[in-house]
Every structure is written in structure tokens, then in C-alpha cells.
């Protein structure tokens, strides 16, 4: 199986690659449109700020490529947020795959949310064999509100989306590569997906 990890200079990719290695597959870090298009699965990681991330994607033409992909695509953290059409973070347009506005947590809570939070999920293949109320590791200041595409919810200040799915596009706000065994299970489920 060919796994492409979209390379646009987003933070800690090593841990993701190691997590895939533990599942017996190699995640190739690439910004080559041909390699990305031909991969069986595409992972769209993200860390840092929305605005600079979108600028980097545009510099490689990836903002146009990603929405055209037909194989299963998994956005992680900022990668999930950028699937939406707008982010309050820097007031930037996202990839527009999912209609929704990314918002900042209010000052009623500490920002960023940092640590392990419970998730509750719907019955989808991405969460197969993962317990209801499982803990996943999150670190983020912005969140995706509950949308029709929401497939898992957590609560911090307010209930919000920790996972999205539309067609072949999936997104998780938590870091599966850092979420111990449940996170590993989620990555395995993603690798098992078929379109």
C-alpha cells in the first residue's frame, strides 16, 4: 500500500511516520502531485497557524490538488480544520471541502486545549473497535463546530467536532499518532478504508 503524507513543512511528521511503521507501512513525505494522486491513501498533517499553512499549500499548488483527490484522505489536527471553508485563525479561506467555519475557543477555558479528552463517536468505519468514551490526545486553540459531517464529538468549553467525514475525506482533530493504542487503532482503520 502506498501512503503519501503531504509535505508542506508542517511540524512533527516523524511521529506520524513512526506510527505508520509500527503498523507495517511506510508513509512517504511528498509534495509531488503525481505521487500524491497515485497513492492509495493520503494523510494531510498539520501544525502551526492556518494562514501560513494555506500559503505553503498554495505555493505547491496543493490547495487545488487536495480537493480533487479520490482516494481516502485523512486530515490531522490543522489538516482537519483546513478541510473546512474558513478559519477564524488569521481569517483565511480553507480548502472548502466541508462547509463550516473554524472558531477559537473562548477565554472561559485555557487556550490551547492540551491533553487527553474523551470522545464520543458515531458508528463509522474510521472508529471501528474503538470504545465509546475513549481518550485521544489533543492540542489546539481553534475548533470545528458540530456539522452535518461530524462523526465524533468532544467537549471543551462547548461540544465540537473531533472527527469529520465527507465522501473520501476524513479529518481528526486529535493526534492518532500520539494517542496510544486507540490512536493506533484509528490509523489502522483508516488504512483499511476503501472508497
Amino acid at each position: 500500500m502506498k501512503i503519501a503524507i503531504i509535505d508542506y513543512g508542517a511540524g512533527n511528521i516523524r511521529s506520524l511516520q513512526f506510527a505508520l511503521e509500527r503498523l507495517g507501512v511506510v508513509g512517504e513525505l511528498t509534495s509531488d502531485p503525481e505521487l500524491i494522486t497515485k497513492a492509495d491513501k493520503v494523510i494531510f498533517p498539520g501544525q502551526g497557524a492556518a494562514k501560513s499553512a494555506m500559503l505553503k499549500l498554495k505555493a505547491h499548488g496543493l490547495d487545488l490538488l487536495i480537493p480533487q483527490l479520490k482516494q481516502p484522505v485523512l486530515g490531522i489536527c490543522l489538516g482537519m480544520q483546513l478541510l473546512c471553508d474558513y478559519s477564524e485563525e488569521g481569517g483565511v479561506k480553507g480548502l472548502g471541502i466541508i462547509e463550516g467555519k473554524v472558531r477559537r475557543f473562548s477565554d472561559r477555558v485555557k487556550v490551547p486545549q492540551m491533553g487527553w479528552n474523551k470522545i464520543s463517536k458515531t458508528q463509522t468505519a474510521l472508529f471501528q473497535s474503538i470504545n465509546e468514551d475513549e481518550f485521544m490526545y489533543l492540542v489546539h486553540s481553534y475548533f470545528v463546530p458540530i456539522l452535518p459531517e461530524t462523526i465524533a464529538i468532544s467537549t471543551y468549553d462547548t461540544p465540537y467536532s473531533v472527527a469529520l467525514n465527507k465522501d473520501n475525506f476524513y479529518g481528526v482533530q486529535f493526534h492518532p499518532e500520539k494517542s496510544s493504542k486507540p490512536g493506533q487503532k484509528l490509523l489502522q482503520n483508516f488504512l483499511n478504508l476503501t472508497v
Binding site: R14, S15, F18, A19, E21, R22, Y137, V139, H175, E177, K178, S179, S180, K181, G183, Q184
Partner: peptide, 11 residues
């Protein structure tokens, strides 16, 4: 750091 990242799946 590289060795630790390869070995563990928590932050």
C-alpha cells in the same frame, strides 16, 4: 529524541 519517537506513542 528520534529513538524515543520511534518507540512510544504518547507525547
Amino acid at each position: 529524541v528520534l529513538k524515543v519517537a520511534a518507540a512510544i506513542d504518547i507525547p
